[in-house]
Design a protein around this nucleic acid. Structure first.
Lengths: 230, 230
DNA sequence: ACCTGAACACCGTTCAAGT
DNA sequence: ACCTGAACACCGTTCAAGT
């Protein structure tokens, strides 16, 4: 029997006992989604697994490697649209909505977004699909590449915004819970002479800041109109 | 010229000795820009100031308060365009370029972006100006508010992307320096049958990912075309 | 081979004490 | 009032040792 060498990774096969990479990733994801990114600690992860703190290091080199693996697993949950369906532009929107939803619903994805750029095969698969759809929509290779990057930048920014808002809403233990209302008050009390345009637009602005995925889609459509229709 | 009372803050005036909030903020900004966000430590900040670790706590309640103050100071460096100049759309682009440049050049701004939403008067001033320009461009109040949020989301996402890329480029101490080349290799070695669209577009894609402020401006113009021209 | 406990070098912050 | 040093409760990770 040929022994498949694990590619320059120190972890070996057959973790015969209680622990294995999949179980660790499950626990990591559960911990992240339940208690938030700042509670994702090697010690907390080990406790979640009912194991000593250092047991995890037998399967992953360090915390960054776990982050990358969680990243890859999350990306793999994105359902790629069927290659041939409706118009390319609609497929792009649907795919981007999936990416936005993933990032926005899983606070776990936030730190990995913030840290290293796309790693893992699943991220590459998403990029490939986006590029294919942009080419199908009639863009030149260079324009398609630029559009793909711009779209991802907008998607990341929007999802980051949404997550940040949701985190600000709760989390206030010593502060009162209504941080959003607090911001609204801050805007409302802004002097009219210093901020002439803002005054009176506070309701519209707070509504827009809570736009969520609907605002994302509206902005995306505008972006696509500008990038494709040009 | 009116005496502004320090609002419910425990710090008093006339810190007669060596330390004061301005000096602390100078040191914090220098530390952040020189050594990066992860090196911004209360202990390192005190060392930079040539002072005991706890001295800073006489002027700021905690690290978050320093972060907010740094945020505010950075935002204040944005030069607001003259109220009446060229066309509103061009003024928007110029203002947004300033914001992008600030975020992209100061890695210090990154953590505050990632953490809490806009705090401080300077951020409000930027928002007010953007809203005014969008209204001047002919948008309804609700549309202007939505457009402002979308534009900021795109700006934050793009700047985050740029900073992240630059951080990935250096930082590799044990790894080799060319992480960008490494990613390029990852993309190039992607099998053509799994990623049909990506194959052959690697040069275009890496060029787009290094697009920087020029790509940002191009995407912004597309976005504005879609939002205004619609 | 997989897992453990102790230990190291950090971090933000509290607290009692100096001046 | 401003600043200090020791201490506390964390963190990621190394290391020698168990099985």
């Amino acid at each position: 029997m040929t022994v498949t060498e694990s590619a320059r990774s120190p972890r070996r096969r057959t973790p015969r006992n209680t622990l294995n990479p999949d179980r660790i990733l499950d626990a990591a994801l559960a911990l992240l989604d339940r208690d938030g990114p700042e509670a994702f600690t090697m010690r907390a992860l080990a406790t979640e697994l009912g194991v000593g703190t250092m047991a995890v290091y037998s399967h992953f080199r360090n915390k960054d490697e776990i982050n990358d693996a969680v990243n890859d697993r999350l990306l793999s949950e994105i359902e790629l649209p069927a290659p041939a369906g409706c118009a390319p532009c609609d497929q792009i929107i649907e795919l981007c909505r999936s990416v936005y939803r993933l990032f926005s619903e899983h606070p776990a994805a936030l730190p990995l977004l913030t840290s290293r750029p796309m790693r893992g095969d699943e991220a590459v698969a998403v990029i490939d699909r986006q590029l294919g759809l942009l080419l199908a929509a009639g863009l030149s290779p260079a324009d398609a590449a630029r559009a793909q990057v711009v779209i991802m930048q907008y998607t990341v920014g929007s999802a980051l915004w949404a997550v940040r808002r949701r985190q600000a809403e709760l989390g206030g233990c010593d502060e009162q819970a209504g941080v959003r209302r607090q911001i609204q008050d801050r805007l409302a009390e802004a002097p009219a002479d210093r901020y002439p345009s803002l005054t009176g637009l506070v309701p519209e602005l707070t509504a827009a800041q809570d736009g969520g995925i609907e605002l994302y889609e509206q902005g995306l459509k505008g972006l696509l109109r500008g990038l494709l229709g040009g």
